[in-house]
Design a protein around this nucleic acid. Structure first.
Length: 174
DNA sequence: AGGAAGATCTACT
DNA sequence: GTAGATCTTCCTA
C-alpha cells in the first residue's frame, strides 16, 4: 500500500486496511498475516488516546502518514500506522491479524506484535518503504465489515471506531 | 527521582 | 469473572 492510501482519515484507513496482508520479514523468512481487526484513534479531543497529551506519542501522530507508531502498554507493544494529513494527529491500531503461513495466535494487539516480533525498533519507521515489514493489498474483500466501540479504553468517544471482519475466527472479541 | 496510569494477557476460581 | 503481573511513558516535585 502506498502513501496515498494512508493519507486519509483514520476511520477510512482503518476500514480499508481490513483484508490486506501484513508481511513481516525476519532473516529472509516472510510471515504473512491478514488484517482482521482495527481501531481508529484521534489526537485532539480523544480521551482514549495518549496523544491528547504532550509527548513523543503526540509528536509521532503529527508526522506524515505511513509512519509506524509503536506504543507500549502493560508489557505489550501496540502496532499503529499514522494516517491523515500531516499535522492532524491520527492513527490506526492493528488489533488482530489472521496468521496465513504460521501458527501463533494473533487475536489481540499484544499477541500479534509478539508473534511477529515487532517492537520499539519500528517506531517512527515508514511502513510504505520498509525492508522488514510492509502491507500489501488484497483483492479478496468479499466480507462483511462489523463495527463496535473501541475495546479496553477507559473513556471512549461516542462513535464506533473499531472495525472487524464479520465472522472471522481471529478477531479478539465479537 | 518517584509515582501513577495505561489502547493487555494469563491463570485461576 | 476477577485479580495480578509487568513495563514504558508522562507528570510532578
Amino acid at each position: 500500500m502506498n502513501k496515498k492510501f494512508y493519507n486519509r482519515d483514520a476511520e477510512i484507513v482503518a476500514r480499508d486496511l481490513l483484508g490486506n496482508v501484513l508481511v513481516r520479514e525476519i532473516n529472509g523468512n516472510k510471515l504473512r498475516a491478514r488484517i482482521v481487526e482495527t481501531e481508529a484513534y484521534y489526537g485532539d479531543d480523544d480521551p482514549a488516546s495518549r496523544a491528547c497529551q504532550n509527548g513523543d506519542l503526540r509528536k509521532t501522530m503529527l508526522m506524515r502518514s505511513g509512519v509506524i507508531l509503536v506504543y507500549g502498554i502493560h508489557n505489550n507493544w501496540m502496532l499503529n500506522f499514522v494516517t491523515g494529513r500531516k499535522g492532524k494527529a491520527r492513527a490506526v491500531l492493528i488489533r488482530a491479524v489472521e496468521p496465513l503461513n504460521f501458527s501463533e495466535k494473533c487475536n489481540g494487539p499484544g499477541l500479534l506484535t509478539r508473534a511477529l516480533k515487532i517492537g520499539k525498533e519500528f517506531h517512527k519507521h515508514d511502513i510504505t518503504n520498509h525492508k522488514e515489514m510492509i502491507v500489501v493489498g488484497s483483492k479478496r474483500k468479499n466480507f462483511d465489515i462489523g463495527k463496535s466501540f473501541r475495546i479496553g479504553v477507559k473513556k471512549d468517544l461516542p462513535k464506533k471506531l473499531r472495525f472487524y471482519i464479520k465472522g472471522n475466527k481471529h478477531i479478539s472479541r465479537k
